[in-house]
Amino acid sequence: TTVHIGNVTYHFDNPEEAVKWAKEMAEKLGLRIEIHGDTIRVE
């Protein structure tokens, strides 16, 4: 599972961890997340 924040990509072996981490980052940055299969974007 990959999480994209701007130009930076993070890789997670556990999809649930990826979603949890992306949600925390989105809250901190005042952004929202979009999930497309195994790709998560924070925008």
Rank of each mutant, 00 (worst) to 15 (best):
residue 3 V to H: 01
residue 3 V to P: 00
residue 20 K to C: 10
residue 34 E to R: 15
residue 31 L to K: 07
residue 5 I to H: 04
residue 34 E to T: 15
residue 4 H to N: 06
residue 24 E to G: 07
residue 18 A to G: 06
residue 12 F to N: 00
residue 24 E to T: 10
residue 25 M to N: 03
residue 12 F to M: 01
residue 37 G to D: 05
residue 15 P to V: 13
residue 1 T to G: 05
residue 26 A to F: 05
residue 15 P to R: 15
residue 37 G to C: 07
residue 34 E to Y: 14
residue 30 G to M: 04
residue 28 K to E: 09
residue 27 E to Y: 06
residue 12 F to E: 00
residue 15 P to Y: 15
residue 7 N to Q: 10
residue 38 D to T: 14
residue 10 Y to P: 00
residue 33 I to S: 02
residue 40 I to H: 02
residue 33 I to D: 01
residue 41 R to C: 11
residue 1 T to Y: 12
residue 29 L to H: 15
residue 40 I to L: 04
residue 38 D to K: 11
residue 16 E to L: 10
residue 6 G to W: 08
residue 27 E to G: 05
residue 11 H to G: 03
residue 19 V to F: 14
residue 43 E to W: 07
residue 33 I to H: 02
residue 2 T to D: 07
residue 30 G to S: 03
residue 35 I to G: 02
residue 6 G to K: 06
residue 8 V to Q: 13
residue 28 K to V: 07
residue 16 E to M: 11
residue 26 A to G: 05
residue 3 V to T: 01
residue 23 K to E: 10
residue 3 V to L: 03
residue 33 I to M: 12
residue 12 F to C: 03
residue 22 A to E: 00
residue 43 E to G: 15
residue 20 K to I: 08
residue 42 V to Q: 02
residue 7 N to L: 09
residue 1 T to I: 14
residue 11 H to R: 08
residue 26 A to M: 04
residue 26 A to I: 03
residue 19 V to N: 05
residue 1 T to S: 08
residue 7 N to E: 10
residue 42 V to L: 15
residue 1 T to R: 06
residue 26 A to E: 04
residue 5 I to Y: 06
residue 25 M to K: 03
residue 26 A to H: 02
residue 22 A to W: 02
residue 11 H to V: 09
residue 19 V to L: 15
residue 23 K to L: 13
residue 27 E to H: 06
residue 23 K to T: 14
residue 18 A to Q: 01
residue 5 I to N: 01
residue 2 T to W: 09
residue 35 I to V: 10
residue 3 V to S: 00
residue 34 E to H: 15
residue 36 H to E: 12
residue 16 E to Q: 11
residue 22 A to P: 00
residue 24 E to Y: 15
residue 16 E to V: 11
residue 6 G to T: 03
residue 24 E to H: 12
residue 9 T to C: 13
residue 7 N to H: 11
residue 37 G to L: 05
residue 9 T to A: 13
residue 24 E to I: 11
residue 29 L to E: 07
residue 21 W to P: 00
residue 6 G to V: 04
residue 39 T to K: 08
residue 21 W to G: 00
residue 18 A to R: 00
residue 2 T to V: 12
residue 18 A to I: 02
residue 4 H to R: 11
residue 16 E to F: 10
residue 12 F to Q: 00
residue 16 E to C: 08
residue 16 E to S: 10
residue 36 H to N: 12
residue 41 R to I: 14
residue 13 D to P: 10
residue 35 I to H: 05
residue 17 E to T: 09
residue 33 I to E: 02
residue 40 I to P: 02
residue 15 P to I: 14
residue 37 G to W: 04
residue 43 E to M: 15
residue 1 T to N: 04
residue 23 K to Q: 13
residue 1 T to M: 15
residue 41 R to E: 06
residue 22 A to H: 00
residue 31 L to F: 12
residue 36 H to I: 14
residue 19 V to W: 14
residue 30 G to E: 05
residue 12 F to D: 00
residue 28 K to H: 10
residue 26 A to S: 06
residue 29 L to T: 06
residue 19 V to R: 09
residue 33 I to Y: 10
residue 40 I to W: 00
residue 8 V to H: 14
residue 13 D to W: 08
residue 41 R to W: 15
residue 5 I to E: 01
residue 9 T to L: 10
residue 38 D to R: 12
residue 40 I to K: 01
residue 6 G to N: 11
residue 38 D to C: 05
residue 2 T to N: 08
residue 30 G to W: 03
residue 21 W to I: 02
residue 21 W to V: 02
residue 36 H to T: 12
residue 31 L to Y: 11
residue 28 K to L: 14
residue 2 T to H: 12
residue 41 R to V: 14
residue 4 H to F: 11
residue 28 K to A: 11
residue 21 W to A: 02
residue 5 I to M: 08
residue 11 H to Y: 15
residue 31 L to T: 12
residue 25 M to W: 08
residue 7 N to C: 15
residue 23 K to G: 05
residue 32 R to W: 09
residue 13 D to H: 08
residue 31 L to Q: 07
residue 13 D to S: 11
residue 22 A to Q: 00
residue 32 R to L: 14
residue 11 H to M: 08
residue 11 H to T: 09
residue 28 K to P: 03
residue 18 A to T: 01
residue 8 V to L: 14
residue 28 K to S: 10
residue 19 V to G: 04
residue 17 E to K: 08
residue 29 L to K: 05
residue 4 H to E: 08
residue 28 K to Q: 11
residue 22 A to R: 00
residue 3 V to Y: 00
residue 36 H to P: 01
residue 31 L to D: 07
residue 9 T to V: 14
residue 16 E to D: 12
residue 6 G to S: 05
residue 28 K to N: 09
residue 10 Y to E: 03
residue 10 Y to W: 08
residue 30 G to A: 04
residue 34 E to Q: 13
residue 39 T to I: 14
residue 7 N to W: 10
residue 35 I to S: 03
residue 36 H to R: 13
residue 10 Y to S: 03
residue 25 M to H: 03
residue 6 G to Q: 06
residue 40 I to R: 01
residue 32 R to Q: 15
residue 26 A to V: 03
residue 17 E to Y: 08
residue 13 D to T: 12
residue 2 T to P: 03
residue 9 T to E: 14
residue 39 T to R: 07
residue 27 E to C: 07
residue 10 Y to V: 12
residue 41 R to A: 05
residue 25 M to A: 05
residue 42 V to Y: 02
residue 39 T to A: 08
residue 32 R to F: 13
residue 21 W to K: 02
residue 42 V to A: 04
residue 9 T to I: 15
residue 18 A to Y: 02
residue 29 L to I: 06
residue 25 M to P: 00
residue 22 A to M: 03
residue 40 I to M: 03
residue 6 G to L: 12
residue 34 E to D: 11
residue 24 E to W: 15
residue 18 A to M: 03
residue 17 E to C: 11
residue 15 P to N: 11
residue 21 W to M: 03
residue 3 V to I: 05
residue 31 L to M: 15
residue 32 R to N: 14
residue 40 I to A: 02
residue 24 E to K: 13
residue 4 H to V: 14
residue 33 I to P: 02
residue 35 I to T: 04
residue 30 G to V: 03
residue 29 L to D: 05
residue 20 K to Q: 12
residue 42 V to M: 12
residue 38 D to I: 06
residue 14 N to E: 07
residue 4 H to C: 13
residue 3 V to D: 00
residue 15 P to T: 12
residue 11 H to I: 10
residue 31 L to W: 14
residue 29 L to Q: 06
residue 21 W to E: 00
residue 19 V to S: 05
residue 18 A to W: 02
residue 39 T to D: 07
residue 18 A to D: 00
residue 17 E to Q: 10
residue 13 D to K: 09
residue 40 I to V: 05
residue 43 E to A: 14
residue 11 H to A: 05
residue 31 L to S: 13
residue 34 E to P: 01
residue 22 A to I: 04
residue 23 K to I: 12
residue 35 I to P: 02
